[in-house]
Nucleic acid binder design. Structure first.
Lengths: 341, 341
DNA sequence: CTGTTAGCGCTTTCAC
DNA sequence: GTGAAAGCGCTAACAG
């Protein structure tokens, strides 16, 4: 690999001059020598070494992004998409994404290690939650980072997040418009912040419409298909007049569980039971019936996060960016008017 | 951030001595001073700068991995999983994955750029195909890389790949054992190498069992759900005695399409028609009926690829590694004995 | 305008 | 055993 010295020799100038040309220090160098240097660069096929530049600039132009373990063969389509779009945005800004793996139980040491070794300039955190130890750690370390997701409201940090509240509110209002009054919700465990925002959207819409939400209508479950089935089974044990005519699930995966259980019991989705999910996971549009759901605006959010990091390094005036992006409501075929009672 | 100088000052030794201790050059330094230095390192909280080390060693300890654009909201569960396990293996070997995005149409320039800027030490290529320009380019550049997937047999390069041939052979033999004789195959376009291996496995099993494969039984389509539907529709137009009783699809997504179309036409999967996919994509186990499929051994393959890269840098004796790993056959509920004719 | 030079943080000869 | 010093490839004062 040719170095700056080779170019200097080839052009018959000093390495400083080459450096000036490279860094567009136009006032420092005459147009004539500039051209000579440019041609020399061409001839020897020179490109500056990133490592050398980084050492001198005390940076890495790398953004760390943790890739979480995938439980039991399933994937998180949202994060996969997010990763791609974020990587893309990073490149446009002259950065690259360094992906690393990170355990859920004890995530902080890996972040600490990467900081100490000066492996990255900043982090993007995904899958944040209340009391997220990573956020706490990074705030305390004053290390640059942005989040895809929220955490404790009293913590001061930059984030972008999907607006689960508004999404689920929309979904609920849609069902109400169709005529449903008995709408139930499959929620995540109460410890899930994102889950609570989504639940809240449902609650708000119900309250606003003056519809009752008996405690039985909210079931908190884990993120798997089986949970959807269990939830529906419990609702079907309610007295007939209490049974929900529509169900909103905190994610598509759980919605699929609800639909599977219903279908096996001879119910027709869209007629006997309406179902809505969240995420627009791959394949759910091909499920039968196609699932009505909410789609997070992943490309935009990835882009914004990188812009935020850029902003951090440009100006020192660190103004807090806290952004919440409403998801897109996608109406497909899993909802209909409730059966006349 | 403390540097090696700070440690030297703290310990009252030269930076060289600190460096010896760091690099375990045990013979160079007495146990006494070693302890002193170690304690000084502790006190100042020092960790060597990766960038500085890299500059001096002329390396990056970064492995480049391209993240391909995701067509139209769908994801590739296989590659997502692969990425995770590869990142994990890389870390154990003291490397990190640098993810970058790459256009299908003109991929080479990005690779060239990363090489010239000396951003990475090696590449992992996924989604390879015949005449893959990236492979050609990297071979010619003599830049280290390994592939997840095969390419032209005459090209000398290291790869690991799923054994589509053996996988589909197994699947076909299974259907034959169940009693099927009229088995059709939804293939990828003929230009797809991976697709052709899978097709070949089906062909081999059929031939070996002495079963006919009329040309109508093989339909080449794109990777989407609709293609599965189209394929089935065409088969249903065949004269009754020609209609296949079982269908193998080159991927789960296409298999889902076949099943959806069949179900809409009132057929019962597993009774009227048996279906097998490939990949064990997320959610297909929750489809009804649960899809019988083949699962690639992703974690292993990711691990092996990193080991191969390590091997490249350890010894110079570059022995070619070309490995093909059979997938795991997962029997679920989408196949049954053919209806008596 | 251009070149000399001193680092950036580290490793590694080569004297002592 | 230990330390001084050169150098990895680059940028940026500072002279001239």
């Amino acid at each position: 690999m040719p170095t700056i010295k080779d170019v200097a020799k080839e052009a018959g100038v000093s390495i400083a001059t080459v450096s000036y040309v490279l860094n567009n220090k136009i006032t420092f160098v005459s147009e004539d020598t500039r051209q000579i240097v440019l041609q020399a660069i061409q001839r020897v096929g020179y490109t500056p070494s990133v490592t050398a530049r980084n050492l001198q600039a005390n940076q890495t132009r790398l953004i760390g992004y943790a890739w979480h373990p995938i439980p039991n063969g399933q994937v998180n389509p949202v994060l996969d998409q997010f990763t791609y779009y974020m990587a893309h945005a990073a490149e446009e800004a002259g950065y690259h994404i360094l992906t690393f793996t990170c355990s859920k139980e004890n995530p902080v040491p890996i972040y600490e290690e990467l900081i100490k070794r000066q492996r990255v300039d900043a982090f993007v955190l995904a899958g944040t939650n209340t009391d997220d130890p990573r956020i706490e750690f990074l705030i305390e370390k004053k290390f640059p980072f942005v989040c895809f997701g929220r955490s404790n409201p009293e913590w001061q940090f930059d984030y972008v997040d999907t607006d689960g509240e508004s999404g689920m509110r929309q979904a609920t209002e849609y069902l109400i418009r169709l005529g449903h009054r008995k709408i139930a919700f499959v929620a995540w465990p109460k410890t899930s912040l994102a889950g609570n925002y989504r639940l809240q959207g449902y609650m708000n819409a119900m309250r606003h419409a003056g519809l009752p939400v008996p405690p039985e209508y909210i079931i908190h479950v884990e993120q798997d298909q089986e949970s959807g089935r269990t939830a529906l089974r419990r609702w079907l044990q309610l007295p007939a007049e209490m049974q929900p005519t529509a169900i909103i699930a905190v994610t598509d995966l759980i919605a699929i569980g609800v639909m599977n259980e219903a279908k096996e019991r001879g119910m027709v989705i869209g007629r006997d039971l309406s179902v809505i999910g969240y995420d627009n996971a791959p394949l759910v549009e091909y499920y039968s019936p196609a699932l009505t759901t909410l789609e997070q605006q992943i490309p935009e959010m990835g882009h914004i996060l990188i812009q935020m990091i850029e902003g951090m390094f440009q100006k020192q005036q660190r103004d807090l960016v806290q952004l919440v992006v409403p998801p897109r409501f996608i109406v497909r075929e899993s909802c209909g008017v409730p059966r006349s009672e």
